[in-house]
């Protein structure tokens, strides 16, 4: 399994990677991108099985990334891992096809639970 982690913070990408290992995804190949623009390039070229994306990033936000994926017909499951989790954002995310929105700070258990309905 290949998982793309999109976050402008390298430190937070590392936290997500560590949490994925703790959640039982230690064998996954991890790809990284610091913003939506670079993430879109990685999705086009590497075809990951799952995208975990921050929301608030420079250049292209997480929701803009998801809408760009939809516009290009890139049907990779995407879940948001973000510090912002208001009801309007959840609505926007789900309407755009996000599989879940996990609020930071999160635990490995919470990530495992969020992923349980998305990947086997």
């Amino acid at each position: 399994m290949r998982i793309l982690i999109v976050d402008d913070s390298k430190a937070m990408r590392m936290i997500v990677i560590r949490s994925l290992r703790q959640a039982g995804f230690g064998d996954a190949e991890i790809l990284e991108a610091p913003d939506g623009v670079q993430a879109l390039e990685v999705i086009r070229s590497e075809a990951p099985d799952l995208v975990l994306s921050d929301w608030n990033m420079p250049d292209m936000s997480g929701i803009e990334l998801l809408r760009a994926m939809n516009a290009e017909g890139l049907s990779v499951p995407l879940g948001f891992v973000t510090s912002e989790s208001t009801a309007p954002m959840r609505k926007q995310a789900l309407e755009a096809g996000a599989r879940f929105l996990l609020a930071k700070p999160f635990t490995a258990d919470a990530l495992e639970q969020a992923l349980s309905g998305v990947v086997g």
Binding site: S9, K10, A11, M12, N56, T82, S83, E84, S85, T86, P88, A103, K104, P105
Partner: peptide
């Protein structure tokens, strides 16, 4: 980067308690 992200998470959690439309 790490302290910026800690502040970002803190800000996001405060924003969630505001009950009004805001941008971070």
């Amino acid at each position: 980067d790490a302290i910026g992200e800690v502040a970002n998470v803190a800000g996001g959690n405060v924003k969630a308690l505001l009950g009004t439309e805001c941008a971070l």
